[in-house]
């Protein structure tokens, strides 16, 4: 049984004349313990898929189920305990007036945990931040440290699934590698399932065993990492995207521009 199962997911945003279809018949499934990548250019709807699964958008049509339970039949608090998300921008995803301690203990308080103090210090150690960061404010931390706090916040409710929305694209290259390795370690330690959105194929290659290519709200192709590396992609767009990730090419840019 798959951990995440999305069937015929469609979503419209906006009203009246400005109403636009953002997602069109998306279907994908992710096995438990797997790390699944979603790639595509900006505006292809990758992040929107994550937001639908997380429950931040509610008016989609189709079916989303997690661990065998559909979104419609699940209670909201239970859903929170299973699915958490890490956002792209570590500067915008932490409340500027809350101490790290507050950021991490709020979810525990909402869900009525008792041993808040122990859990907070444990999770801080787990994401590679010492207890000395506990009473800092986000503006006293670097981008990488903030992203670690965001990861700690996502993990503190002990979810089974982490939705990662370009979690490293706002960080510089050396920090990116650290954070990606942290994700790999955490997945092994905690039996997590990842759904990773990225436009960086190197990140996907490093992290994921399966991936789906998205373009203007639809899934163009689903393939495994081996297929991607060994030229097993069948769709023209996927191949263009792969070639674009290797080097900058004037002709390719023109080709992409003409296609869109």
């Amino acid at each position: 049984m798959s951990m995440i199962d999305v069937r015929k997911l469609s979503l419209d945003l906006g009203e009246g004349v400005r109403r636009r279809q953002i997602l069109n018949d998306i279907s994908l499934s992710v096995e438990a313990g797997d790390s699944f990548g979603l790639v595509g250019e900006s505006g292809s709807g990758k992040s929107t898929v994550l937001r639908c699964i997380a429950g931040l958008y509610r008016h989609w049509t189709g079916e989303i189920s997690i661990d065998g339970q559909t979104f419609a039949s699940a209670d909201r608090m239970g859903w929170c305990r299973k699915v958490q998300m890490v956002f792209q921008d570590p500067y915008g995803s932490l409340h500027p007036k809350h101490k790290i301690d507050t950021i991490l203990s709020e979810p525990l308080r909402i869900h009525g945990f008792k041993d808040i103090d122990r859990r907070v210090s444990q999770i801080l150690t787990q994401v590679g931040l010492g207890p000395r960061f506990r009473y800092r404010f986000p503006h006293q931390l670097s981008g990488g440290q903030r992203q670690r706090v965001a990861i700690a916040r996502a993990l503190i409710l002990e979810p089974k699934i982490l939705l990662l929305d370009e979690p490293t694209s706002a960080l510089d290259v050396s920090i990116q590698a650290e954070i990606l390795n942290l994700f790999s370690d955490l997945r092994e330690q905690l039996d997590l399932t990842y759904l990773l959105v990225s436009h960086d194929l190197a990140v996907i290659d490093h992290m994921c065993s399966n991936l789906a290519v998205m373009r203007s709200g639809s899934v163009v192709e689903s393939l495994s990492r081996e297929q991607m590396v060994h030229g097993g992609a069948t769709e023209r767009y996927t191949n263009t995207l792969l070639r674009a990730s290797e080097k900058y090419d004037r002709e390719l840019v023109d080709e992409l521009a003409a296609a869109s």
Binding site: L56, R76, C80, M85, F87, G92, S93, E106, H111, R153
Partner: peptide
């Protein structure tokens, strides 16, 4: 519309909170 509000919603925080 900021991400930390989305994160709070995801953690089950209600409107009043």
């Amino acid at each position: 519309s900021s991400d930390f509000i989305a994160a709070a919603t995801l953690q089950g925080a209600g409107s009043i909170r």
